[in-house]
Amino acid sequence: MKLLAGNSNRTLAGAIADYLDLPLTKAQVRRFADNEVFVTIDENVRGEDVFIIQSTSYPANDNLMELLICIDALKRASGKRITAVVPYFGYARQDRKTGGRTPISAKLVANLITRAGADRVLTMDLHAGQIQGFFDIPTDNLLPTPLLAADIRENYKKTDELMIVSPDVGGVVRARALAKRLDADLAIVDKRRSGPGQSEVMNIIGDVQGRRCILFDDIADSAGTLCNAAEALMANGAADVAAYVTHGVLSGAAYDRIGKSVLTELVVTDSIEQPEQSLDTCGKVRLVSCAPLIGEAIRRIANEESVSKLFD
């Protein structure tokens, strides 16, 4: 088995390599003067089971091209099986036509990865589960629920005080799974989206009076939805509000918005590499490593074992 890392999240790739006790494959993933991507694999990969670790986070297009070119390089180097390990799958929010003459970009990206030569895809907490069906190759969608539930149990000893809150109706299934695992109650925020990155809270479905609320979502981009939902929960009598999110996109003024919000903390996995300076300045964002989860899934795939048993 070989592990190859792109440039999107070298820290996570190193942590996965440490978990598997396997060195990262020597390779050069660099740019020409005009910013074209160039890849050289410096080790023999002929007949090997190769896993490429590359999130397609910001800059999404550059990181996606790195992934595609790495796949092509490995294919031409006679790798036996190539698995694209994409902890954060970019373009996942464009999973359907939202209006006339709009693309389904998630399907396009799935086609690109498949046609580039990937034999398998391993990702985590897809924004929409049906994206698995966009691929014509085996695709494993890892669930972060056990990982985040363990962190909640460690930091919130009295789980009977907890209320798991979905920040919108679309995330109810995800929030319910976490609430069930923690044996906690569930509440829902009814919001209206007036435009991309803009939302307004209308109602809170559920009694949050005196409860310690945890907002649970898959992606935090501008963090506007989380901050507005936290304010609405506090206005409805919540004791305090924290947020757990799988993918911390955190673009634009997100860190500043979180720092000024009523949130006690925002916990995100390291599926997307976060700038150290922003973490230190904000002080409210905490990372939970998903390396053991992804590393164990890679080990099971390489050994032809069940991945779904990770979530039993």
Rank of each mutant, 00 (worst) to 15 (best):
A232E: 06
L233E: 02
L233Q: 04
M234H: 00
M234P: 00
M234L: 13
M234E: 08
A235M: 12
A235V: 01
N236K: 12
N236D: 11
N236R: 10
N236S: 06
G237V: 01
G237Q: 00
G237A: 01
G237D: 01
G237C: 01
A238I: 00
A238C: 00
A238E: 01
A238T: 02
A239P: 00
D240W: 12
D240N: 14
D240T: 05
D240G: 03
V241C: 09
V241I: 10
V241S: 09
V241T: 10
A242S: 15
A242M: 06
A242E: 13
A243K: 11
Y244D: 05
Y244A: 08
Y244G: 05
V245Q: 05
T246N: 07
T246P: 07
T246E: 07
T246W: 04
H247D: 10
G248K: 04
G248D: 08
G248R: 04
G248H: 03
L250C: 09
L250N: 10
L250Q: 06
L250D: 09
S251I: 12
S251Q: 10
S251P: 03
S251G: 14
G252F: 12
G252L: 09
G252S: 13
G252T: 08
A253I: 09
A254F: 08
A254C: 14
A254R: 12
A254T: 13
A254H: 09
Y255D: 08
D256V: 14
R257Y: 08
R257L: 14
R257C: 11
I258Q: 01
I258T: 03
I258H: 01
G259A: 05
G259Q: 12
G259N: 09
K260L: 05
K260W: 02
K260P: 01
K260S: 12
K260M: 06
S261R: 07
S261V: 09
S261F: 05
V262Y: 06
L263F: 10
L263V: 13
L263P: 09
T264Q: 13
E265Q: 13
V267N: 03
V267Q: 03
V267D: 03
V268F: 06
V268E: 01
V268Q: 03
V268N: 02
T269D: 05
T269E: 05
T269Y: 04
T269Q: 05
D270M: 10
D270T: 07
S271M: 09
S271D: 09
I272N: 07
I272A: 11
I272Y: 06
I272S: 06
E273R: 13
Q274P: 02
Q274C: 08
P275I: 11
P275F: 11
E276H: 12
E276D: 15
E276Y: 04
E276M: 14
Q277N: 13
Q277F: 08
S278L: 15
S278Y: 13
S278H: 14
S278N: 15
S278V: 08
L279C: 08
D280T: 14
D280C: 12
D280N: 14
D280L: 15
T281W: 07
T281E: 15
T281C: 07
C282T: 04
C282H: 04
C282D: 02
C282P: 07
G283F: 04
G283N: 07
G283S: 05
K284F: 02
K284E: 03
K284P: 02
V285N: 03
V285E: 02
R286G: 00
R286L: 02
